[in-house]
Amino acid sequence: MRALLHRHEFYLAALTLALSAGIALANPAFCSVANLFDLCQGSTVMGLFALGVLIVLVSGGIDVSFAAIGAFSMYVTSKVLLGLDFQGSAAVALVLGGAIGTLLGLFNAFFIGFLRLPTLIVTLGSASLFRGFLLAFIGTAIVNTLPAGMVRFSKLTLWEMRLADGTIAGLPASFLLLVVAALLVGCVLQGTMLGRGIYALGGNPVAAARAGFNLRGRQLFIYGGTGLLSGLAGVVHACMMRNANPFDLVGMELNVLAAVVLGGAGITGGRGTVLGTLLGVGLIVTINNSLILLDVPSYWQKVVVGAVILVSTGITARTGWARARGAGLC
């Protein structure tokens, strides 16, 4: 019980529950399966990005290029499949998007791992580079008709029902992707030498190197993996929106970083968990998606979102100090 009280995730979950209870009191429409599904769907893309950012933050780095990688992968994937007149399954789109994302991530890894440049500088530069390359050489026109497989995937649900008021509520299949990705990232970070090495790298790179961890290999894994997740997120986003807009996704960086930090990942590295990250994403998505339910006027929505982020990251920081020693390992 005491251990539970010391865990950041506990406070975050409690905060989310309290907020949800408040919203539900104000508007009972919040407590519905349809709403729950909508929140799950709203969390999918952000969650995939956040998992990638988590890995980077744990390793003591920071990544601001993930949105550009997502946009690049989604647009190139859509263009290529349309060019080939591909009619098959969306799995191919996901694999292709993931592969493009991984390559772009490895591009980051090269500069970070081999040339030892600071992560913020590298990813700021590469974000601009990827985006500029995309718009200048690949195209700016929005793809409004996606390959058939991707449209089918967007309509695919794990579970669907027709509610009393005639609306359809469905849990999209892409949510499963987030669940699988979260499990995988969790297992790697917690249960493998590779993952423990990432925590060590974030905690103290010199000590990690002396302890015999291969840091370069880990940098490749970290940024390649983040690229993979970003590429997947981009393709999922395109499927959900049923278009591929090369101008999309940019501007998500801050919200995703806020969600991950909210989830307890230390901006200085060495700390962070998958569960916390998912809770952070859930909290931000819940706030963002409940302001109309609460009838909050447009300008106030920004005030509310900002205030909640400030308060909850404040709590995060406080509890972080309380358990700074050996923190984040579980």
Binding site: N27, H237, M240, M241, N288, N289, L291, I292, D295, P297
Partner: peptide, 23 residues
């Protein structure tokens, strides 16, 4: 309700519409 902003973003328009339907 008052005018809803969607920042010329299709995703935002989509999310806000779903929320409107719920509310």
């Amino acid at each position: 309700t008052e005018r809803i902003e969607e920042y010329d973003n299709q995703n935002t328009a989509y999310e806000k519409t779903k929320e409107l339907i719920r509310a």
